[in-house]
Simulated scan of single mutants.
Amino acid sequence: MSTPDTSFRFGDFNYACSMVSLTLCPLVGQSDGVEPVCYSRNVRLVDTLIFQPSTLIIHIIALIMTAIMIYHIRSKYTAVGRKEIIMFFYLYILVTIMDLLLISGIIPTASSLYPYFTGVHLGLISATFWCLLLNGFVGFQFAEDGTPLSLWSIRISSFVVFAAVTFLSIATFKDLGPFKREAPIALWIVFFIFNGAAFLIYVILQIVLVVNTLDDRWPLGDIMFGVLFFATGQVILYVFSVDICNFAKHYIDGLFFGTIATLLSVMMVYKYWDSITKEDLEFSVGSKQNVWEVKELLGEDEMAGGGLYGQPGGGPGSQHGGYGGFNGGAHSPAAGPYGQPNYFEERY
């Protein structure tokens, strides 16, 4: 077997796969894929080899943390874009589950199903980035959040992206038509450029949203931390993974820290969304306080006017006689328009 050229080239996964064991690496390049220079040790569990055990633990933690974030999002009934952002976290859960099954060897690379699961995995990754991008437009209210137009536009378009990337991936792995595993240019463009552009556009949209519409600038810190975590994870994966692996004696590699960085960036997406929507509940409570204040003012007016109908002498049936009747009270110089004494003129 010839040694593949691992130098960086446009449209070639050889460099990336030599640094870190991505799920697609056994399916691109040469017939048996591209193996990383250094990767984490495996462990035997009940006669089954488990690859990347440390990263597997991080994936389980990521599932728990994402479930907690979804619970908090669902509890904020008045938050803007609640139903839209929750779709992003559901997709992230699916990506994490697929990643967990593939990199751990639970679905072995020798299995005939591995290319199809990997295609679904790559499709889910692109759909997740696309869903995040569309969530960046929710705050601009091009379509009212929570409406069928807003929700189904995200759902349908995300499914289209998922289906297209899944087909492209499987076609590349199987050498169908113009797609070749030895030259996966289209898949490389989607994996790095399309996904990266979606993330970058989302960040720019949120910066514009905060600067132009919010008085508080603290959410910019959440955005910057999210970008920092994501960028750090990518640098660790594709630059320092081999160095980390050699330093740690193959116990962990860059995939471990890259997965942690990705989880932290997803958590910052939640933190940012929470920071720009938390005042909705405060606003609703403030509205109730204003209602009570109006009721108190109305109560003072009623007392000043002499009763519910402005007649201190009784209800609407007391029209003949009494202190404020229509007949007798009309001749009083201090009478109001309905015959009641005009206390306001006396008081003020």
Rank of each mutant, 00 (worst) to 15 (best):
F173D: 02
L101I: 07
A171F: 11
I97W: 06
E84I: 02
A143M: 14
Y114Q: 07
Y92D: 10
S153K: 00
G177H: 01
G146Y: 06
S112G: 10
P184G: 07
G139Q: 08
I156P: 05
L91K: 13
Y92L: 12
A183P: 02
S150W: 00
D99Y: 09
T96P: 06
T109C: 09
E182S: 15
S158Q: 03
E144T: 13
T172Y: 03
D175E: 10
L101W: 05
L122C: 09
T109R: 15
V161Y: 02
S150K: 00
L102E: 01
S157W: 04
I125A: 10
Y90W: 15
G139D: 13
A143F: 11
F117C: 04
L187G: 06
I103G: 04
G177F: 01
T96Y: 06
S104L: 08
W152I: 07
A186F: 10
F173H: 02
G139L: 09
M98N: 14
G119I: 02
G119W: 02
Y92M: 15
V138F: 01
L133C: 00
Y90T: 12
F159K: 05
L176M: 11
L94E: 13
R181V: 07
I103Y: 10
F142E: 07
I106G: 07
T147Q: 05
A143R: 11
P108Y: 08
V138P: 02
T166V: 02
A143G: 15
A171S: 14
L149A: 12
T147I: 08
L151F: 09
I85C: 08
S104Y: 07
T172W: 03
T128Q: 15
E182T: 12
G123Q: 03
F159I: 11
V190A: 09
T109M: 12
V160D: 00
T172E: 03
I93Y: 10
V165Y: 01
R155E: 07
S112W: 13
L132F: 11
L102A: 02
E144M: 09
S112R: 14
F129G: 14
V165M: 03
Y90C: 10
F129A: 12
V165G: 01
